[in-house]
Design a protein around this nucleic acid. Structure first.
Lengths: 127, 127
DNA sequence: TTCATAACTGGTAATGATTATCACTTTCAT
DNA sequence: ATGAAAGTGATAATCATTACCAGTTATGAA
């Protein structure tokens, strides 16, 4: 990320505009509207760089997803559609902070992810 | 898992014998010593079934790993070699239990994974 | 036991996300 | 203004996982 690039700027801008957590392919489709000639490899390259640089988060899973919101917040993943959603954990938050602080003292980083069937998948159950 | 199969029995047995967290391919190699004719598809099929049946754990990541130990315990993943190791979290444990209990009350399942460079990768740094 | 059938197997082809490669273009410090 | 380092886009390659299929095995009912 030594030089600046229009492609990278637009990828970051688009990712910050949405509140979902798109896959690389979904980012590619979003960015193509502004930069029709961009290649998928450029998208992967820049998503990787942006996440290594701390500008975005990479969410591991079967398919990787990316999050343009780097404020501390929480996610849940739907085990059916494999999508990731933001989550307000309310009073869980202070417990999480304890876990996080205590982990750091022990030289560990913590990764917490919640799992819950999403509303969409609950609705589509009858189908 | 309605019928029993020798292949599945041996996969489970081998997985319970080791304290590492092998990939499907590593399980394949292990099991091949006892069942030289087994196919890789059979290994994947049975690992999936065993994990859905709650006999083993599947650990998500770039490459999936499997754990034959279903007693409650904790893992850390090395971000360099991507291997997974067991971890004694000591006093973190009670905090984790709080988080877990409170999550369940809110209809969420929690997944916690720790991250730390493993000893092997620290040693090999100079190389 | 015999039989029907549902589950399981092994080999292999297909899939699909991600990475590597390469010739070309852009950026930027000097 | 120029040359080295970084970035790009097209496409081929990789590789973990899944799908498919013809043949085998397990199981329960007759």
């Amino acid at each position: 990320m030594k030089y600046k690039s229009r492609q990278r700027d637009i990828i970051l801008e688009q990712l910050k505009m949405v509140d979902c957590h798109p896959t690389a392919d979904e980012v590619y489709i979003m960015v193509k509207r502004k930069l029709p000639k961009i290649g998928i490899a450029t998208v992967y390259r820049n998503l990787e760089q942006l996440s290594k640089g701390g500008c975005i988060f990479k969410l591991d899973g079967d398919i990787k997803r990316y999050d343009g919101n780097i404020m501390r917040h929480f996610h849940y993943r739907c085990p059916q559609c494999e999508r990731v959603f933001d989550l307000d954990i309310g009073k869980l938050e202070s417990i999480y902070d304890d876990l996080s602080n205590e982990s750091h003292k022990q030289g560990l980083e913590v990764k917490v992810e919640f799992v819950r069937i999403c509303e969409n998948c609950i609705e589509n159950k009858g189908k």
